[in-house]
């Protein structure tokens, strides 16, 4: 099944939790807040949020400096 992550299409085997998808794509979940189909998810929700077919995921990474 396909999902969109940061504007790119990814083919993943099956529905899975966001945290597992990030690990499988070698993305460190630290310092990330996600938007999935327009809703916001903070890091502690990543292990409970199931990503399904055609979901649109945007990851916003926070880095220091200001």
């Amino acid at each position: 099944m396909n999902i969109t992550l940061n504007g790119k299409t990814y083919n993943i085997e099956k529905e899975d939790y966001l945290i597992n998808i990030l690990h499988s794509l070698n993305i460190n979940p630290e310092n990330i807040i996600a938007e999935i189909n327009g809703e916001i998810y903070t890091k502690e929700m990543f292990a409970e949020k199931l990503i399904c077919k055609n979901d649109v995921v945007e990851l916003v990474k926070f880095v220091g400096g200001g």
């Binding site: 945007e58 916003v60 926070f62 880095v63 220091g64 400096g65």
Partner: peptide, 17 residues
């Protein structure tokens, strides 16, 4: 980048000090 309806984040999201 937008997060939901009410949050905007400005930057390049990679170049950390």
């Amino acid at each position: 980048k937008k997060l939901g309806k009410n949050i905007l984040i400005v930057g390049d999201f990679e170049n950390e000090a």
